[in-house]
């Protein structure tokens, strides 16, 4: 695809490995970059809001994005308690951007997944969630065709007007390997961002999330073959159906509650 006139920017965050909790390139953000590189190649811009550590070993997470072949990452320097949404929005308002790519949600911090929505609101752009691919871009009509990822491998083709914000799903193409050499040689171009303190979060209390209770899988199998089948068989869908009308919806909910023994 040659989309030389297209201006695409990808927003990257510092991820966190689920078991070691070490900083790393966030999986969805990396997929967003992969998608962006495939779309516009070297013209992809990359933006990170935050502070860059002076210690090179603390830079590895951000640098691993550079290792994908980017020549630079634009850095909006802001303090820890600043509101990234406002900082980024402030910056993007001054640019002429066609497509903004983000992950669905951050791997640490608030991880609310709200950033793309709030940005879309601030910038007055359309927002499309969880895309797996950008299929085509019609620059004449200023429209793009994207593939949205739905559960269980389903995809939905959407047409969306430029400019837009898209959050990139894990279903998008795997990110390319990050190479050490380009990662070390890539540059950070830092600008001091407007200081916008996040007032809302200053009053919050933060507690560790509790694991959600998980339904036990009760297998009544008599033979090893049955147990094997139960362990390997995919949960078959098809139980769900779309219900219209208030009466029917309420009845369906009630039926489920009764079935589960809750009423």
């Amino acid at each position: 695809m040659s989309n030389n006139n297209l201006s695409v920017i990808s927003l990257v965050s510092i991820g966190e490995h689920p078991t070691s909790r070490r900083p790393r390139r966030a999986e969805q953000d990396a997929r967003a970059i992969e998608l962006g590189i495939k779309l516009v190649g070297d013209n992809l811009q990359t933006l990170h809001a935050g502070k860059l550590s002076d210690d090179p070993s603390q830079q590895t997470a951000l640098r691993s994005y550079l290792g994908m072949g980017l020549s630079e990452i634009h850095l909006l320097e802001m303090s820890e308690n600043a509101d990234a949404v406002l900082v980024i929005a402030e910056y993007l308002k001054q640019q002429k951007i066609d497509i903004i790519l983000t992950g669905v949600r951050a791997e640490n911090g608030e991880s609310s997944g709200m950033l793309p929505y709030l940005l879309a609101e601030q910038l007055g752009m359309a927002m499309v969630t969880s895309i797996a691919e950008i299929l085509s871009i019609d620059e004449v009509n200023q429209q793009a065709e994207v593939l949205q990822a739905l559960p269980r491998g389903q995809r939905r083709k959407l047409k969306i007007d430029l400019p837009f914000i898209a959050s990139v799903d894990m279903a998008a193409a795997m990110p390319r390997q990050s190479a050490f050499g380009p990662a070390m040689r890539g540059q950070f171009e830092a600008t001091q961002a407007a200081t916008v303190t996040d007032q809302e979060s200053s009053g919050w209390q933060v507690a560790d999330a509790k694991k959600r209770p998980k339904r036990l899988k009760i297998i009544k199998a008599k033979t090893a073959a049955d147990r094997f089948k139960a362990a390997t068989a995919k949960a078959s869908g098809g139980g769900g159906k779309v219900v219209h009308g208030v009466e029917e919806s309420a009845q369906a909910i009630l039926d489920l509650l009764v079935e589960e023994g809750l009423v």
Binding site: H17, T19, S20, M68, Q177, S178, A179, G181
Partner: peptide
């Protein structure tokens, strides 16, 4: 191939990422 091009084939890239993140 690995450090400049990032083209370790097969599971190579996954393994190297694991080594970075979990040793």
């Amino acid at each position: 191939e690995t450090m400049e091009k990032g083209q370790t084939p097969g599971k190579g890239s996954e393994i190297l990422e694991n080594l970075s993140a979990t040793d």
